[in-house]
Amino acid sequence: METVEEQSDEVVSDDKSECPDGKSGYPGDVDADLIARCKEELPHETAAYYELLKKYESMVYSTCYRMLGDKLEAEEATQDAFLRIFHKIHQFEGRSTFKTWMFRIVYNFCMTRRRKLATKREREETVGDEMIIRTKEEHRMAMGPDMDNSEYVHLALKELRDEDREIITLRFISDLSLEQIAEVLDAKLSATKMRLYRAMEKFKDVYLRQQKAREEMLNEA
């Protein structure tokens, strides 16, 4: 199996899944028309590509942000992924949906970036690649009563292990099906189901623990 580093530097193949007719793209791919237009138009005309950008940029950026936990890193990963798509879309053969192919690229870029970040953090003698809220002050600030629920969700996600946060992100932010997640992660469907299940259980535990801590803090105040 290729390493993640290699995958992000090379064209991401879409040959992991079957394409029944092998010619006209993945059956039912909602993006088939846009992809066909991109292949005809790029690089001189960018209207179809811009349609793709408008459709997926926000979802890709949100995915990168949840995976990397840093806005600047997320912006750069999003840009890298869409540039790769711009240059390599003519090599997309429709053996998976475009969305699956795109998120394999996004995932690989995020993994590469996260490794670099982890190395950098290790060099800076921080806690490594787990995004842990480190100081009591940060913790108290992060749990302030003024936060809305989506911020509590974000806080709980931050406390998960990277691989748990990844799969929850792919399912709920990238809005991928289990089959698509399995393709992106290059894993078996049964393993993907189990991994998602365990990640959701962990999220639930963390969320409930943080909720309890917030309530205790409010009672003390």
């Binding site: 960018t46 408008k54 926000s58 949100s62 912006e75 840009q79 540039l83 509590y152 969700v153 932010i173």
Partner: peptide, 21 residues
Amino acid sequence: LAGPFPLPPTPPSEQRMQSIL
């Protein structure tokens, strides 16, 4: 349990898209 779960994506950013383009 967690209300807005799944989380809504970050709103699209014209500036980010133009930068990519």
